[in-house]
Deep mutational scan, measured.
Amino acid sequence: MDTYKLILNGKTLKGETTTEAVDAATAEKVFKHAANEHGVHGHWTYDPETKTFTVTE
Rank of each mutant, 00 (worst) to 15 (best):
M1L: 13
M1D: 05
M1Q: 08
D2S: 14
D2M: 13
D2K: 13
T3V: 12
T3P: 04
T3A: 05
T3F: 07
T3S: 06
T3E: 08
T3C: 12
Y4A: 01
Y4H: 02
K5I: 12
K5L: 07
K5R: 13
L6C: 11
I7E: 03
I7Y: 05
I7S: 03
L8I: 15
L8G: 02
L8H: 03
L8M: 13
N9Q: 10
N9G: 04
N9H: 09
N9A: 08
G10F: 14
G10K: 04
G10N: 04
G10M: 14
K11G: 08
K11N: 12
K11W: 12
K11Q: 11
T12I: 11
L13W: 15
L13N: 08
L13T: 11
L13H: 14
L13Q: 09
L13M: 14
L13V: 14
L13E: 07
L13A: 08
K14P: 04
K14R: 12
G15V: 15
G15K: 14
G15S: 13
G15N: 09
G15A: 14
G15P: 04
E16S: 10
E16K: 07
E16C: 15
T17W: 15
T18M: 09
T18D: 05
T18E: 08
T19I: 15
T19L: 13
T19F: 12
T19P: 01
E20S: 10
E20P: 06
E20A: 09
A21Y: 02
A21K: 02
V22T: 12
V22I: 13
D23R: 03
D23M: 03
D23Y: 03
D23W: 03
D23E: 03
A24E: 07
A24Y: 12
A25M: 10
A25W: 10
A25P: 08
T26K: 05
T26I: 06
T26F: 07
A27G: 01
A27I: 01
E28S: 06
E28D: 04
E28G: 06
E28V: 06
E28L: 15
K29Y: 08
K29E: 11
K29V: 11
K29I: 12
K29L: 12
V30N: 06
V30F: 14
K32H: 09
K32A: 07
K32Y: 06
K32L: 10
H33W: 11
H33L: 14
H33M: 14
A35W: 06
A35H: 03
N36M: 14
E37M: 14
E37T: 11
E37L: 14
E37W: 09
E37V: 13
E37F: 12
E37D: 09
H38W: 15
H38E: 09
G39H: 06
G39Q: 06
G39W: 05
G39N: 09
G39P: 03
V40Q: 03
H41E: 10
G42F: 04
G42R: 02
G42C: 02
G42M: 03
G42A: 03
G42T: 02
H43V: 15
H43M: 13
H43F: 14
H43T: 15
H43W: 13
H43G: 06
W44E: 00
W44F: 04
W44Q: 00
W44D: 00
W44S: 00
W44I: 03
T45V: 08
Y46G: 00
Y46K: 00
Y46P: 00
D47N: 10
D47S: 07
P48R: 07
P48W: 07
E49Y: 11
E49D: 13
E49F: 12
T50E: 06
T50D: 04
T50G: 05
K51R: 13
K51A: 03
K51W: 04
K51P: 00
T52W: 02
T52Y: 03
T52Q: 04
F53G: 00
F53R: 00
F53W: 05
T54Q: 05
T54K: 05
T54C: 08
T54W: 07
V55A: 03
V55W: 03
T56D: 08
T56F: 08
T56I: 08
T56W: 09
